[in-house]
């Protein structure tokens, strides 16, 4: 089992500035999954069933094409050249920041231009005071005046069967909802949800095929909801019914579900709050959708190729929130 690569500048700054802060908010420990073509950071994929994420927390998948993050990517294992292990996100982030700081030291006069690259390797080391070797992810770089080696402790690599389960869960999670609506302002949604969470723990989310997103918290004493209308729709769409302006938001939504033009699910407020932390990864677009049959609530984040409005296919980032009830669909 071998892994050795150099970070690209874009890759390390994506991880440092966007994805690690977001992943850290979603959960303390994540899986790193390396395949011959992709590198992934995953939350809550194991333990999930094929039908959808379990109640443990939102599934979160950040998948990068290997060339976006690494160059000279050397990966080999007896398990189809796939390696997976778990790591504490905060430790990983701290190590990255430390090597970045050294790496950023300006070269002394007379040095060859171009800073040396940051290397990452999977190693087995004997930690001080221990009798058995432990696996580490080691980051190494040289600055002008210093060199640094950071060892981040990781779990033992996942067994073949666990890697297979991870891959199966990923494959199952690939199904996109038939209708996705674009949420224009994620921080605003987060501030709304921060206020809604005082009201109740259970959130009803509905998405219509004509671009309405409806969030509602209901307890025996109070119902609070928010409706966003005329959002951009991707996938299956329908024309908005005419003359429903004067209806209440919840009536409109109930009627849309009855007509089969909307899906509605109940999700845990805490999971939604966690998934909203993903805006720390500064996506260019965010879409909400409900998986067929109300299996889960899916949040898809999209990135543009810098300087364009074209989707960057080398990054795939999404969350799947477990649902507590298949809803009224």
């Amino acid at each position: 089992m071998k892994f050795k690569a150099f970070f690209t500048d874009d890759g390390i700054s994506l991880l440092d500035k966007r994805f690690l802060p977001a992943m850290d908010k979603v959960g303390r420990v994540c899986h790193v999954f390396l395949t011959p073509t992709h590198a992934m950071l995953l939350h809550n994929l194991l333990g999930a069933t094929a039908a959808g994420p379990d109640g443990g927390g939102p599934q979160c998948v950040a998948q990068f094409a290997k060339d976006l993050i690494f160059r000279e990517y050397n990966l080999s294992s007896r398990n189809g050249n796939q390696i997976a292990f778990s790591v504490e996100v905060a430790l990983l982030h701290r190590a990255l920041r430390s090597v970045l700081a050294v790496h950023a030291q300006p070269p002394a006069a007379g040095d060859a231009p171009g800073a040396p690259a940051i290397q990452v390797r999977l190693v087995n080391k004997l930690p001080a005071g221990s009798r058995s070797a432990m696996p580490f992810l080691t980051f190494e770089t040289k600055g002008a005046r210093a060199a640094v080696v950071q060892d981040v402790p990781i779990s033992r690599p996942l067994s073949r069967s666990d890697v297979e389960r991870l891959q199966a869960a990923l494959d199952a999670a690939k199904d996109l909802p038939q209708t996705l609506v674009q949420v224009p302002d994620l921080p605003q949604l987060q501030s709304l949800v921060d206020r809604l969470k005082n009201v109740g723990d259970l959130l009803t989310v509905a998405v219509t095929q004509y671009g309405d997103l409806h969030l509602q918290v209901s307890t025996s004493l109070v119902t609070v909801g928010s409706e966003f209308r005329k959002l951009r729709v991707i996938g299956d769409r329908a024309n908005a019914p005419v003359g429903d302006q004067n209806l209440t938001a919840s009536t409109r939504m109930d009627m849309a579900v009855e007509r089969g033009e909307a899906l509605s699910v109940q999700a845990n407020m805490k999971h939604l709050v966690k998934s909203l932390h993903c805006h720390l990864a500064k996506p260019d677009c965010t879409f909400y959708g409900i998986a067929p049959g109300g299996a889960c609530l899916t949040v898809v984040f999209q990135y543009f190729i810098p300087g364009t409005r074209l989707a960057d296919k080398s990054i795939s980032f999404y969350c799947r929130l477990p649902v507590l009830d298949t809803g009224s669909s």
């Binding site: 709304l192 004493l221 109070v222 909801g225 409706e227 966003f228 209308r229 005329k230 209440t248």
Partner: peptide, 8 residues
């Protein structure tokens, strides 16, 4: 296009 409501 966006509306917030509450019923107490």
């Amino acid at each position: 296009d966006s509306c917030l409501y509450a019923e107490i």
